[in-house]
Design a protein around this nucleic acid. Sequence first.
DNA 1: CTATTGTGTTCAGGTACGTGAACGTAGGTC
DNA 2: GACCTACGTTCACGTACCTGAACACAATAG
Lengths: 263, 263
Amino acid sequence: MSTEPQARRAAETGASFQPVKSADRTLDVLEALAASVQRPTLGELARRLGIPKSSLHGVLRTLQARGWVRVDETGTRYGLGLRALRVGAAFVETDDAVTLLAPVLDELAARFGETVHLGRLDGAEVVYLAKRESVHPLRLFSAIGRRLPAHATALGKALLAQLDEERLADLLPTPLPRLTSHTLTDLEALRADLAAIRAAGYAVDREENSEGIICVAVAVPAHRVGHPGQREASDAISISLPVSRHSDALQERIAAALLAAVA
Amino acid sequence: MSTEPQARRAAETGASFQPVKSADRTLDVLEALAASVQRPTLGELARRLGIPKSSLHGVLRTLQARGWVRVDETGTRYGLGLRALRVGAAFVETDDAVTLLAPVLDELAARFGETVHLGRLDGAEVVYLAKRESVHPLRLFSAIGRRLPAHATALGKALLAQLDEERLADLLPTPLPRLTSHTLTDLEALRADLAAIRAAGYAVDREENSEGIICVAVAVPAHRVGHPGQREASDAISISLPVSRHSDALQERIAAALLAAVA
DNA sequence: CTATTGTGTTCAGGTACGTGAACGTAGGTC
DNA sequence: GACCTACGTTCACGTACCTGAACACAATAG
């Protein structure tokens, strides 16, 4: 009976391979803690993850002893610990795309003086991998590691535009979550926008994830970041600017600069 | 026989508690991958961690299936995956000190136009938790999550200065690693510096971790970041500037501003 | 004061995980 | 060609982990 959840997961993913239960659960715990807005208690976590309290207890104690999880001063609420920070930093430091595109991002940031991002598609989300700050003081707070729905960002749309209808339908959630009044939540409207992106070669997000922010992005060809065999790009770079500084002429110049940068 | 390593670890840490083996190993793997300069193979990892290849195999497959670990295109070298990034970002977003001190960092960055850091002591290392960029283009590359030996940074010395002789000796490695020609590697010299820091109320690092960079830091009292019961501070804030812009008068002004900011 | 509901914790037992040795394969080296 | 070493992978066995139920304790409600 206790083997059922593992078998079920394996069946769901289609993979005929048995994950190590405790390792799997360790990741479940870490991801659940990362996704929690408020720090949960042991019991809450156990219910949410469908793990017996006693089993979770051992895992949490192990994570706590290693500094990956910490408890509140009350000893009753669990959150991520300091060690969890290290792997993220290490990932960014060793990622090929981040390393190879660093000078490109620097050059774009210096040229336009606006915020520059490097993002990667992960499922239906875009993860920010690198950032160069605008010279203007609009703090976006360490966005590295932050995730946003792909359909609501220029980075995401530039990457989604490469996919065919079928894969797009598989990937995107329904309904498409709305972040601002400008977010494209209608699949047909999004499809039309993606077609326009394919034609133009670059994507634009018009206040679709943050009010007042317009963003221009292009996909980075896979061979450009050391993955010659790969057909589709997984990375994209973007420049964001407030509507107050936006103009069609500037948008054209930015798009041309981005396309030249990834060529 | 196979239970020995766990028993040994428990005995070493003094804790009379049995960690969950697979969970412990999961963290071992993630930390080893984070610490690797080059991506290791399964066999290399197994040797380094003292884990049988076959056991490590299962753990790695599990981590890989969840996107925490990825393999090279050759399928033979393992590195951290995209999901590893999420927990680090989540930690920073939910940390009390980062949240509470954000406006303080903003104000200092705006006032001096130099790089501002928030760091925390973890063992003998300092971890960077937040950063505000200098307006001057000296890219330090997303230092968040990065670690440096505490004795070689202003942040670290500001925090080490609170500890008594005994705890200091327990904490610091011997010999003290050298990062630049200015690093204090002599324990007595470091002790003298820490005494001076206690007297002055703030710490200065004179090119001790990076040539050409001087840094001023003060510890943030624990009650200031929502930990009223705690006697020692674990966090500190700093301002870094290149020697070319340094002067004793500016250093005094920075120190006064930092002390006022944490009061 | 008692009941209830929530914490975290412990423990014996049945089970599913870790192990070591074997395998298949690829890329060298001589 | 044959050998060697490295890679990842598989499998049956025995062990040590996961489980459910019971525990101790605290806080709140009635």
